[in-house]
Amino acid sequence: MTEGQVHSPLCLRTFALGVGRGDTVLARDIALSVPAGSGLLLRGPNGAGKSTLLLTLAGLLEPLEGSVVLEGHDEDFGPAFHHCGHRNAIRPRLTAVETLEFWCGINGNAAMPVAEALDRVGLGRQAKLDAAYLSAGQQRRLALARLLVSARPVWLLDEPTSALDTEGQKLLAGLIGDHLAAGGIAVIASHDAIAVGGLGVFTLEAGA
């Protein structure tokens, strides 16, 4: 089995998808097709529905119209989506290691040892530190480490660069690049440039 076949051939598609909150439709007729090994950058002004679209793709919100399909995903593999939102889901009084071990425990599919994931995101020295003492950028790095400890084919990242320094942004681009190279899919909502080659761009219009 080669590296590219770690995930079965996948494709994330949406059909005439309409997303919104409550009865308010923010965007409609979204037709995406993101095959394995490629990423999509969501652009659009504030309030255009980028976060709502990501939540709908993840299945955390019901689509108002149309549907989201992940083709070629083996159900036995477990849940397909990693969602990394504005809130980092980090709780004071737990150390960085405990936080990651917890996420690895409930998300399953352990892919990388916790210590290695912390080293990868540059938190090796803060492993035993109470997560509340981490800076905003470090907390964001810890949230990104969550994506590494459990393998899932689709990453949905909402403003992943917020609070990250330039080193962190390079790190993020490296993580996304590796994920895509391993046959994963990434959908990223961001206003910043993400230094990953071959990202498609999808722009949401305001007030559509």
């Binding site: 299945g59 955390l60 849940p79 989506f81 990693h82 969602h83 939102g85 889901a89 409930i106």
Partner: peptide
């Protein structure tokens, strides 16, 4: 929200 995406 992440609990709802968990493997359990």
């Amino acid at each position: 929200a992440l609990y709802r995406l968990a493997d359990i």
